[in-house]
């Protein structure tokens, strides 16, 4: 024990590391239990940490109103893909780690009494990547919306298309985008919420095709990842590049909304557009 602690009589209490996080922005120690209660916002600097799917669903929907759809859908391995690990093994690991079958959870719910169809992506599941399952679930959600004339809200968080399903992943961009075009033909609103990070094949398809596109503060949003851009142009990227506020300033987003206000702004928009 050092002289200082002897002097003050304080004893350092060790917190097991699975119980705490560090704020990526201000380095504040965040107790996980408290974090969940605070909508995964840093209490000191208000940084928006990534939010687990079920916390997000609870935050956006009315109590117990969420009914999950297509929750048994699972990736197959159409290419028999093997990199440093078989794709099937990666899938199983992600299923165990996240307790979901793929990178999006979809369902029907109410939001301040408005019926909505909601999809929430999960970055923890293979980087939120879009393969056949994400593509199919988004498509089914949009088709249900078309049929029943219910507005759609999708919360994106994804590194892009899933390489392990090759060209079939790329085609999910066409598959999802065309259902949005069809939904537009019957004037049913689709609101897209982009969260940290949304890039690649997801930002270049359904995430950017909302009637209203909005984002959480400080989210990384773009087509190419910052590292790819830096390597290509051999130049350091400016501060705040590809963050929500930057996109808002350049006219690419409609709104940047604090997590605490997300439900109420959605409620307002649904009332105005429906």
């Amino acid at each position: 024990m050092g002289w200082l602690s002897k002097l003050t009589g304080s004893k350092k209490t060790e917190i097991p590391s699975d119980l705490w996080n560090k704020c990526p922005k201000c380095n504040e120690i965040l107790i996980k239990k408290d974090l969940a209660k605070n909508l995964h916002l840093c209490p000191k600097c208000d940084f928006h940490l990534r939010m687990p799917v079920w916390d997000r669903i609870a935050m956006l929907t009315d109590n117990n109103s969420f009914v999950e759809l297509d929750n048994q859908m699972e990736s197959s391995d159409p290419l028999n893909f093997l990199d440093t690990m078989p794709y099937t093994e990666r899938i199983q690991k992600s299923i165990c780690a996240t307790d979901t079958f793929d990178a999006i959870t979809c369902g029907e719910a109410t939001l301040d009494g408005h019926r909505i169809l909601l999809g929430v992506m999960n970055f923890e599941f293979m980087g939120g990547s879009m393969g056949s399952v994400v593509g199919e679930k988004v498509t089914r959600l949009m088709e249900l919306a078309y049929e029943k004339k219910i507005p759609v809200v999708i919360v994106s968080s994804s590194g892009g298309a899933r390489m392990q399903e090759g060209i079939l992943s790329l085609m999910q961009m066409a598959k999802t985008s065309q259902t949005i075009a069809r939904l537009a033909e019957v004037s049913v609103p689709y609101i897209s919420i982009l969260t940290d990070p949304t890039t690649g094949g997801v930002s270049a398809s359904f995430a950017m095709l909302g009637d209203i596109n909005m984002a959480e503060p400080g989210s990384l949003i773009g087509f190419a990842g910052p590292r790819v851009i830096e390597q290509t142009i051999r130049q350091k990227l400016p501060d705040g590049f590809q963050r929500s506020e930057f996109l808002l300033q350049h006219g690419i987003l409609d709104l940047v909304i604090h997590r605490r206000q997300m439900k109420s702004i959605l409620s307002k928009i649904l009332k105005l557009l429906n």
Partner: peptide, 9 residues
């Protein structure tokens, strides 16, 4: 394009 993709239920 609707038919593209493979998955299992």
């Amino acid at each position: 394009f609707r038919s593209m993709g493979k998955f299992k239920i």
